[in-house]
Design a protein around this nucleic acid. Structure first.
Lengths: 142, 142
DNA sequence: TAATACCCTACTAAAACAGTAGGAATTAAT
DNA sequence: ATTAATTCCTACTGTTTTAGTAGGGTATTA
């Protein structure tokens, strides 16, 4: 599993916020019940997302979490990097010339993997996911 | 880091074997010294690769490890899967209909990531890496 | 028969994972 | 004013994974 529950839960949860974009805050309780994810654990994930400026909060009754930006301004990559850390496949330092012969060919592979992942996650926004979701639901009702 | 040292070391090491394809076995000692990787740790990685049929061994002095197949028949994906396990991004069961509304859109993302990784690693063989390596060395000497 | 090399199993320190626990602060509703 | 709902914050914890280490056994060749 190359993604931990941090990224998996976190993406689901913030997508839930994007479903509610413009409709007021959503409480953790609701999200954790809907997805059956520990409330306290989610809290810690949301704390990171808030720190990085992706979500805002309102405290007290009727409070909760909400997107701090438009869904089209938040990419999957931003979320995953906040929660999982940088997506890396090796510890070769970029542009450093390998001191050991024949390592470079493997580095090229690792960079390709990295690039292909980044290419996916940096080009999908929460708004795109919303569109996708609509399509899925439409398909199901055919 | 989405790849552990198992995949990173292991790919480097088996690539070394492919550089020696057809020239007799290479001892672990040599590889571990060249790449500065623990010999005993590499041994465990090679044991898995042998079990899965990618390398053969010759015991005794002058012995060592060698590819069990042609470099063009071994993909990076085979090696990484042997060493790291299946490349997965979520635990959604394929084709299972999500019981929870709106999870599906996130599943689509995870599948895209998975597919893009698999697409890279399943389409590069050790022979391709060898070609790449030659190019790198040629470029350096320009 | 000594040296070289693979073979095999068990152990381990450290980190990461996946939470749990519990209290403090804020605020809306009554 | 009080209560209840909510976020905020920090610390703790059991389990698994990581990245090895350790040490003996077996085969082979010079």
């Amino acid at each position: 599993m190359i993604l931990s529950t941090k990224g998996r839960y976190g993406l689901k949860a913030i997508f839930e916020l994007s479903l509610n974009y413009g409709l007021g805050p959503v409480s953790l309780k609701k999200i954790s019940e809907k997805y059956d994810i520990s409330e306290s654990y989610l809290e810690q994930l949301f704390a990171k997302l808030k720190k990085d400026g992706y979500i805002d909060t309102i405290r007290g009754p009727q409070g909760g979490y909400m997107l701090a930006k438009k869904p089209e301004e938040i990419t999957v990559g931003m979320i995953l990097r906040t929660l999982e850390g940088e997506i890396k496949t090796s510890d070769c330092i970029s542009n450093e010339v390998c001191s050991r012969e024949s390592i470079c060919a493997t580095r090229v592979i690792f960079e390709k993997i990295e690039n292909s992942i980044n290419n996916v996650i940096d080009n999908i926004t929460l708004a795109d996911m919303y569109e996708k979701q609509k399509n899925i639901l439409t398909e199901e009702n055919k």
